[in-house]
Amino acid sequence: MEKKTNWIVTFLIAAGALFILFPLYMAVSIALKTPEELANSVLSPPMGFHIENFAKAIKATNFFQAFKNSVYITVTAVILTILTNSMVAYAIARNMHRKFFKFLYYYFVSALFIPFPIIMLPIVKQTSAFDMNNPSGLVVLYVVYGVAFNIFIYVGYIRSIPKELEEAAIVDGCSTWGVFWRIIFPLMAPINATVGILTCLWAWNDFLLPLIILNDQEHMTLPLVQYVFQSEFGTDYNLAFASYLMALSPMIIVYLFAQKWIIGGVTRGAIK
């Protein structure tokens, strides 16, 4: 039987693709143009590939220093988040029959419903008092604030792992610590990949938390230097867009290669 083409769905998909690709085309086009070409036409493609815009943007934004800060914050936050959040989730998932751990689960998950602006001012005061207004302090905040969502998906996934595997390991003389690191943690690879990728995207692209925490210009992340550059040199759109593309490209690559783990891991963690 011949299948009929659903033209409405096809049109909606094409329109959605156009809405996504057009801004990307504009960003690339503007980044490769000269100021004179921008003045003549914004929508037209560039007459030549002015790669020097990227070199100027790197110099104007101190790009490599900000890139180094973003890499340090992102990589450290991902590693610590996976190691700490997975252990907390394992303790809760295997003790959900106890009132205390059940309370902990709902306590952590309830943090998902608290708007960030409500706690923004107390965070600024506390981080300043504890001398945490630096990249390392920012890493701690990412690990702590990621607990709510990560516990939600971790617990659902861990509860799908048969307890018989742990019981067999304990009979063989394995401690609780050994059971987690030798049996459970390797089995959590798919959900660890999901949590790691989501944390990576969040920490790399986040603007608001670094804005209120980081005071030293040498500690600025890529989103912050883009903001400062746009504020000071608002008319240099070609350099600004060149800088935006350089800041976005690492996470675009990460997402393109890792999107199947993001979607699949969240689904498994939420349903099981």
Rank of each mutant, 00 (worst) to 15 (best):
F180C: 00
T127M: 14
L165H: 10
S41P: 01
L239K: 11
K33I: 01
T194F: 02
K99Q: 09
N238K: 04
M96H: 07
A17F: 03
L256H: 05
L209W: 10
G156Q: 01
Y90I: 00
A27F: 08
T81A: 06
F257G: 01
M120C: 04
E232A: 12
Q217D: 09
V75D: 04
G146K: 02
M87A: 00
S249L: 14
F49N: 08
Y154M: 00
T81F: 02
D236Q: 14
F229D: 06
F64R: 08
L21A: 11
P250Y: 08
I252L: 14
I262G: 00
F19W: 14
F11Y: 12
I58K: 11
L211P: 06
F19E: 11
I30M: 11
L214I: 06
A55S: 11
H50T: 11
F100L: 13
W7R: 07
M220N: 15
R268Y: 07
T176Y: 13
V228F: 10
P117Q: 03
G137C: 00
E167A: 00
M120Q: 12
I73D: 05
T127C: 13
V28I: 15
F257C: 08
Y244N: 13
L12P: 03
D236V: 04
V147M: 15
V9C: 07
L138A: 06
W261H: 13
M251R: 04
S70T: 11
V109W: 07
S41W: 04
E166H: 01
I252E: 09
F241Q: 07
T76E: 06
P250C: 01
F207Y: 15
G264V: 00
A247L: 05
M188Q: 02
F49A: 11
V28C: 05
